[in-house]
Amino acid sequence: MTKVMKRGASERPKIIPTLEAELIGRGGVSSFSVSGVVCIGELSEEAVLLICHGGRLRVTGERLDLVVFENRSAEIRGKISGVTLTYGKK
């Protein structure tokens, strides 16, 4: 089947969520970087909920900091005790 596109249209690039984790190693501090974040569901020192395309990521711990970047990435830094991945935005 021939794909028909309207003149002047272009394919919208897909946002593929990625996840990176790094243990800094100083007093149990670690960081999580997530790209493709749609919105932030919860933000506190003990828990951060990030909603991405296709899933949700909930990070729990102590003294959590959230850093947002221009390219819709977010980084969570702090003493992370738990990470929960859930499929679906709800």
Binding site: V37, C39, I40, L43, D65, L66, V68, F69, E70, R72
Partner: peptide, 20 residues
């Protein structure tokens, strides 16, 4: 107001560190 602020910054594409 921190949660609303974080979502606004994410939407506008502004870098910031939202700690205490």
């Amino acid at each position: 107001s921190r949660l609303r602020l974080a979502n606004l910054l994410l939407r506008l594409g502004i870098s910031a560190q939202l700690g205490e």
